[in-house]
Amino acid sequence: MTEDARRVFRMDNEVLAFRFTATVSDRAGLAPRERLADPARLKMWLGAAGLGVTDVSQTDLENAVELREVIYRVGSAIAAGEQLEPKDVRTLNAMAAAGHAKAVLRHERAGWNLTETDPVSDALGVLAADAIHILGGPDRSRIKNCEGPGCAGLFLDTSRGANRRWCSMNTCGNKVKKSRITAR
C-alpha cells in the first residue's frame, strides 16, 4: 500500500467490504467526508485493497459509490435488527454476479485476477461477494456500527464477549478515551 493511500484511507477494518464503506468518514457527524472524490481516488483505494486496476471512469466511480452505500445500509440494518430493503439486496446480488474475478495464490498470498475487459466491475464484484459472505454469514449477529463520536462505521465484533463498541481502538476508541481523560 502506498503512503498516499495510508494518508487518505482507513484500511484497518478486518472485513474488506466494511473497509470499503469507510471511504466516507464521520458518517454520523456534522460533516461526513467523501474520500472517493474522483476516479483517481477509487483507483488508489482499489490498489491499496489488492484489487488494482489500470483505469477508472466516472461511471465506475458512480457504481462504486452506489455499492458502498448499499453495503453500508444493509450492514447498518442488520446491526440494528431491521428489515433489509429488497432493492438494496437486489443491487448487492447483481453487482456480485457481474464480477468475473478469480481468486489466485501469488507469492504465498491470496489475490485476485481481474478480467481485462471490465476490471472495475470485477473488483466491485469481489467487494459485493465479500459483503454477501459477511452480511449473510453465520457471524451476521456480530455486525455493529461504531459508537465513536461521529463515526457509525461498520465492523465485525470478534471479541469473546461480543462487547466491542468501536470500529478501531486506534482511532475511535482512543478518541473516546482521550475525551474521558480530558473531562476529568
Rank of each mutant, 00 (worst) to 15 (best):
A123F: 05
H133F: 09
A79Q: 02
S76H: 08
S141H: 11
A31G: 11
L156R: 10
V70Y: 01
F9W: 04
V24D: 07
W45E: 05
R106V: 09
V104A: 00
E69C: 11
V56N: 05
A183N: 14
L154P: 04
A103Q: 09
E34D: 11
T182V: 14
S76Q: 09
L127V: 08
V120A: 05
D139H: 09
L135T: 10
L67T: 01
F155K: 01
L156N: 06
L114E: 01
G75A: 07
R19W: 02
R109L: 02
S121L: 10
C146T: 02
G99M: 01
K43A: 12
V24Q: 08
G161L: 07
S141I: 00
T91Q: 10
N170A: 15
G148T: 04
V104K: 02
G50S: 10
L16I: 12
C167E: 04
R7L: 02
G111S: 03
I78L: 08
L16V: 11
G148I: 01
E69F: 11
R184L: 12
D88Q: 07
V70L: 08
G161K: 08
V24I: 15
C167A: 10
D26S: 11
N163H: 04
A28E: 13
S57I: 05
L61I: 07
G29R: 06
A31K: 11
N93P: 08
W166Q: 06
A131Y: 07
R19P: 00
L51W: 09
A101V: 02
P32F: 13
I134R: 03
K177P: 13
K144L: 00
Q58E: 14
A162M: 11
D12G: 00
A77G: 12
S179M: 13
S168E: 14
T2P: 01
I132F: 00
K178I: 15
G47V: 00
